[in-house]
Design a binder for these strands. Structure first.
Lengths: 386, 386
DNA sequence: TTAAAATGTTCCCGCAGAAAACATATACCC
DNA sequence: GGGTATATGTTTTCTGCGGGAACATTTTAA
């Protein structure tokens, strides 16, 4: 991986790092293999041997254990045309899944996402008023029951909810989801009780970026800034050195409230000139047939990107929702303005891209969060028949 | 550490994680112990046993190996008054050091910093014109020779240079240090040749934050934003989840060029209203006896802090140089303005603090970078007699 | 002086991956 | 079509690491 020491994990020195034992080695290697086939799709044993540097007898043992755990399947090799005994293909079992819930202002959605990232089934209900946590949990229970009947034999690792709002660092408490009207709700508790499954709760933008990083437009890119324009404002998230930016309390990445215009309009957050008041869905709709107005909005977007660049120096700026749409109709202008405003004009342009996963993004991202525990410790996380 | 899975290291899926072997376990445990005594000062074997969770026979073997490597010393226990056989005290050997170099506009400085963080010796020379890379390397060689004679028996792990400018992600190339006039210089090569030692090069603000995190005001705090006001502008750095923010190319954390006033003055970087043009040393000097002007500058600082808070949600905002001084004379105003502007007014205030390490900061921070390799692999990094 | 408690030390065990030997399945060559 | 080279799967044996028990050592307390 060529990881530089400077960015390598340094044990926090407030507490001494835990010691490591031989079973940690086993756990680490099982995790590496499952993670590899999770992200990389089917891989042969021979590829795993080369990539991990482990001995092929060791790979054999590890794959056998993963198969016995019901996490992967070994298939006979496809025809490769290469000389030598064909290597067995290892792929994640698609009957291993996670539940992903997305409660929003106008609808609640639940999906079952397989460990290879495919959405196996989904249920959606439109709602007139924003759902309460109890509404959302009740719907989740019902939808999960239906999906369980639809797909017999499905085993789930847990559930995750993508909530449009601030979620505390504990991955449990929805501190404030203004559009849902949820404040200080322990939604993990509510949902876990309804589903009798382990649950994690997270911010929707974070989970969206996670999905795009795993299977979408930011696949494998280590340093990404994500801006998503939706009806409820601008959601932001960042991946820093391969890790999600969370902040000390869980509120990091709120780029919608970055100050972009010091004499700008009053924002709902109490400040003035926040990105999401200067560049929101209404303004974009209003500017739909006004070239100058669109140019101005594109310039605002470029200023925001330039500001984030000098803070994060990302490899990729990812735009979703109406920001992606704006970028698409003013691609050259945004690129040029970002270059003008860039802190380092002499280096090559930072890549800008639209999201790739569409309507499945939040379900996939939430499921990724739910799978994280299993990927870290394949033998230690139980699967539950749905 | 209670690390949440969401922020846990996820193997990048562009490449499969390397497999782990038993000797990795050994390396990890040696690293944990050396890191613990490095940051935590002298610790008893009994404390190490408790903190790591390892067996005391294992700790015995590990400590013996570290002692044989010449990295730690075991002392007879101090009187504790507790019942039972006294536990041996393990402390890092102070004759294990790193060289730290700081070439600046008006001076070059080199220090030898022991592995326990104490500055053993330093040499400084004032210069009329900014030094060339060759000047700096020649001074480093001469100063290292002198220090070697002054402290016989010193063994060094390598050298690190803190450069006021942009350093590429390779920890070698000074892409642009405007005040030194260095552009595109492979300073690692130059310095390594002069010293015949392994060298890393880094940005000065990054290394300053690293020092404060290791031994100063940000000790052990995982999520920190650092703003340092110096004659050469405002340097910025951030620690995100215990890791230094570096960015894809190494240019992350340049908060001095965050836009703070959309109708502000032209900045040297080509943009307008950057923090370091709105709030620089001259303006602060000019406002020295003008309360209203000081208030305005303090408000600018508060706006910058508020902006960084909604992006990073830090546990601590650390201020150095003239920004620390400004904070000190307008502490209440800054605190109040940050609270007004805070994205989350209902949660407790984010801590703001001044730096603690003073003139040794850069030397200590650079040395920390040089020690990183040794701390990660105590048995694999050779020490060189100076 | 003796007992209790905590820690250091030694020896043996189980588990992890490595390595070598062997078995198997493909392509290539004649 | 048969033999050979090549690559991979499988089995067995070996080495290294940490755990744990038994024993030794050093202190405090009774």
């Amino acid at each position: 991986m060529g990881e530089d020491l400077a960015s390598a994990a340094v044990p926090a020195h407030t507490s001494v790092a835990r010691g490591s034992r031989n079973d940690n080695t086993r756990r680490h290697n099982l995790s590496s293999l499952l993670t590899a086939v999770h992200y990389g799709g089917p891989l042969t044993r021979a590829q795993l041997t080369r990539d991990t540097g482990l001995n092929r007898s060791t790979i054999g043992g590890l794959v056998t254990e993963l198969a016995q755990l019901g996490l992967v399947i070994e298939d006979a090799a496809a025809e490769t045309g290469a000389v030598g005994r064909p290597s067995l293909i290892v792929r994640p079992r698609r009957d291993v899944a996670a539940l992903a819930l997305h409660p929003d202002v106008d609808a609640i959605e639940l999906g079952a996402v397989a460990i290879d990232g495919t959405v196996l089934a989904r249920r959606r209900v439109s709602v007139d008023a924003p759902p309460t946590p109890q509404d959302a949990a009740a719907f989740a229970w019902e939808a999960a029951r239906e999906i369980g009947e639809e797909i017999p034999g499905l085993r789930v690792v847990g559930a995750a909810a993508a909530v449009p709002g601030l979620v505390a660092i504990d991955s449990a408490t929805v501190v404030d989801a203004p559009h849902l009207g949820w404040r200080g709700v322990d939604f993990r508790e509510t949902l876990a009780e309804a589903l009798t499954l382990p649950v994690v709760v997270g911010n929707d933008a974070n989970m969206g970026l996670r999905a795009e990083w795993s299977f979408g437009a930011a696949r494998g890119v280590d340093t990404v800034v994500f801006l998503n324009g939706s009806a409820s404002g601008i959601g932001g998230a960042a991946l820093v050195g391969g890790r999600m930016l969370r902040g000390g309390r869980g509120y990091g990445g709120e780029f919608g409230h970055m100050m972009i215009r010091s004499d700008g309009e009053r924002c709902s957050c109490g400040r003035s000139g926040c990105l999401e008041t200067e560049l929101n869905a209404e303004r974009l709709d209003a500017a739909a047939h006004d070239d100058a107005a669109l140019d101005a909005l594109a310039s605002t977007l470029a200023a925001a990107i330039a500001n984030l660049e000098c803070a994060f120096d990302p490899d990729l700026v990812l735009l979703g929702g109406y920001l992606g749409a704006l970028y698409d109709v003013r691609r050259d202008l945004v690129t040029a303005r970002v270059r003008d405003l860039a802190f380092r004009p002499d280096v090559e342009d930072v890549a800008i891209a639209r999201t790739a996963l569409g309507g499945n993004r939040l379900l996939i991202g939430a499921a990724e969060r739910a799978f994280a525990a299993l990927l870290q410790d394949p033998a230690g996380v139980p699967l539950v028949a749905l």
